[in-house]
Computed example of a mutant assay.
Amino acid sequence: MLCVNIDRTVLAGEISQEGGGVTNSADAGTGSDAARTRRRYRQLRRAELEAQTRLRITEAAMKLHGTVGPSRTTVTAVAEEAGIQRGTVYRHFPDEDALFRACSMHWLSLNPTPSPEAWVEIEDPSQRLRRALAELYHWYQRNQRMLDNVFRDAPLVPALKPPVEGLQRQLSAMHATLMRGRRQRGRRRARVGAAVGLAVGFGAWSSLVRENGLDSAEAVDLMATMVSAAGAQ
């Protein structure tokens, strides 16, 4: 009797004969898995590089918005700042709106506005106002260059309309929080509301601190006194 010793892995797989050779399906499966793994790795690596390029473009645009301003930021300048070709910018951001939207979202993620939710816990409206203005004026101080450029260029660049409107909505939410618990009614409440609206604006901080030489703490005191006087009349 002729005895043939067959390996278990061969016995478990399908045996095919091609040109006198024997192929083990288990080995073929292993090769296929390895190919899929390599392909998956290449896909992940390509996606990672694409994300890095997109971030470089976004940060380049953000830097230019904060220096020369949005209206003077060109695709050519963004490409040069990011160290890529113009076509690469368009491949990631087909139009100005897409680029400005990504830039605004990235900038706000790095520079979030103060949250009025923390102020709600302060029952005294006057103390709440002082806390809010201190945080807001610090934010204005830190981001004044970008805010100057954005507000200056907003009438010239339609793509700036959504982020500017978004900031205005945030200021409106702050205003509503700062009006909570105030007992004034009628025209007196209207005066208080107007004073609070003036106090939270970037223009008020800019006028008091940059144009008239107050520090932020003095600006907070002055605005808080103004709001208090508006409610007392």
Rank of each mutant, 00 (worst) to 15 (best):
V4R: 11
N5I: 15
N5F: 15
N5W: 14
N5S: 14
N5C: 11
I6T: 07
D7M: 08
D7T: 06
R8Q: 07
R8K: 07
T9F: 09
L11Y: 11
A12T: 03
A12R: 11
G13D: 03
G13F: 04
G13L: 04
E14N: 08
E14F: 09
E14K: 15
I15L: 13
S16V: 15
Q17W: 06
Q17G: 04
E18Y: 10
E18K: 13
G19Y: 10
G19L: 08
G19R: 10
G20H: 07
G20A: 11
G20P: 04
G21L: 13
G21W: 11
V22D: 02
N24Q: 11
N24W: 01
S25V: 02
A26I: 14
A28M: 10
A28T: 04
G29K: 06
G29V: 02
T30L: 10
T30M: 14
T30A: 14
G31N: 02
G31P: 01
G31D: 09
S32Q: 03
S32D: 08
D33Q: 07
D33T: 07
A34G: 04
A35L: 13
R36N: 05
R36S: 09
R36D: 14
T37V: 13
T37M: 05
T37K: 04
R39D: 06
R39A: 11
R40H: 07
R40D: 05
Y41D: 05
Q43W: 12
Q43C: 02
L44F: 08
R45T: 08
R45L: 14
R46D: 12
R46E: 14
R46V: 13
A47P: 00
A47S: 10
A47H: 06
E48H: 12
E48M: 11
L49T: 01
L49G: 00
E50D: 10
A51P: 00
Q52F: 02
Q52A: 11
T53L: 15
T53E: 11
T53R: 13
T53V: 13
R54T: 13
R56F: 08
R56H: 04
I57D: 01
I57T: 00
T58A: 01
T58L: 04
T58C: 05
T58G: 02
E59Y: 00
E59A: 04
E59Q: 14
E59S: 04
A60I: 03
A60G: 02
A61W: 00
M62R: 10
M62W: 02
K63H: 10
K63R: 06
K63F: 12
K63L: 10
K63P: 00
K63N: 00
L64W: 01
L64F: 07
H65K: 00
G66E: 03
